[in-house]
């Protein structure tokens, strides 16, 4: 718990479904990235540099990552996707929790950003005017 000792600040109690699930995730510039479709729980003793261990019942646990993508489909229809198909935003990239979750990194740097990035490069960005800033005089 290296970060906890260095912070010296307080603790804020939230309920996951009430305050985190289905909230909008914004990147450091305020651009929407995804929604919180599910959350991954990991064992709390892992250090930042280790590969996180899965949480076990009754043993100290913490949030490891925001999950999105296929987990939404299974939350709608039931079941759960294999861990290899989870699309993660690491919890350590979360900066603020308000009416939306604000990240400390840019959307482009995240793995979950690929569908938007792909469409930008291959479709929408290629249409004339696709990179035009609407707030500027045209």
């Amino acid at each position: 718990m290296s970060r906890e000792s260095s912070s010296g600040a307080g603790v804020r109690v939230v309920d996951a479904r009430l305050h985190l699930l289905s909230r909008q995730v914004l990147d450091v510039d305020g651009e929407p990235v995804t929604t919180v479709d599910d959350l991954e729980l990991v064992a709390a003793d892992a250090r930042d540099d280790d590969a996180p261990r899965d949480a076990a019942p009754g043993e100290p646990a913490e949030l490891g990552a925001i999950l999105t993508g296929p987990v939404l489909v299974t939350r709608l229809l039931g079941g759960r996707p294999p861990a290899s198909r989870w699309e993660r935003v690491p919890w350590r990239d979360v900066g603020h929790v308000g009416t939306a979750l604000e990240l400390t990194v840019r959307a482009d740097s995240l793995d979950v950003h690929w569908p938007e990035g792909w469409l930008r490069e291959h479709v929408v960005g290629r249409i004339p005017g696709g990179r035009h800033d609407p707030e500027e005089a045209s």
């Binding site: 995730v25 990235v33 929604t35 938007e116 930008r120 929408v124 249409i127 696709g130 609407p134």
Partner: peptide, 23 residues
């Protein structure tokens, strides 16, 4: 659709920065 799925949206953005919304 964009707000349900958390996509980037808005006419104030360049279309390429809200690609799925424009599509």
């Amino acid at each position: 659709l964009a707000q349900y799925l958390g996509w980037s949206w808005g006419k104030f953005r360049r279309p390429a920065r809200a690609a799925r919304f424009h599509l």
